[in-house]
Amino acid sequence: MLVSEKHGLTAEIESLAEKYGRTREALLPILQEIQMRHGYISEFAQQEIANFLDIHPVEVYGVVTFYAFLSRKPEGRYIVKLCQTIACDLADKEAIARAIERELNIKFGETTQDTKFTLQYINCMGMCDQGPAMLVNDDVYTHLTPHKAVEIIKSYK
């Protein structure tokens, strides 16, 4: 990360700390805003947040790794979230995953070179009777087949 970027981020976190208060309770709202604006929360950002809230970096890391909606790496414009919970799993989410991975040439947890797509697993989103199910950003897709999934991905390219 460039030094100037770091300073920018520090200033940004400081103003968020002013806005939400320099207490432990401010942690989630600050993380959410950083996530929204940057698409991820860097290692540096986590330490700076800890600094301003006078908590320990490892506590911030604990929260960031706990919530699926917070990420530690830059993400693509389209985030493909495939459900990995039991109903979708039994409906063969594995085949869907492999097909998408082949199409984008990346693995789950990774982002494409052009930062267009990120592949993630998520837990049950309540579409259990219509599995396998996935999200592309906020759009829901159900009753997937490998072929159908690849077509959906292509439509975002």
Partner: peptide
């Protein structure tokens, strides 16, 4: 480490089956 010593090296991180006591990153 957090309360008694206020050093704050360790915390439970990740979730569910993957939960581990770990250091920062």
């Amino acid at each position: 480490c957090i309360d008694l010593q206020e050093v704050g090296v360790l915390e439970a991180t990740h979730r569910g089956y993957d939960t581990t006591i770990s250091t920062f990153y």
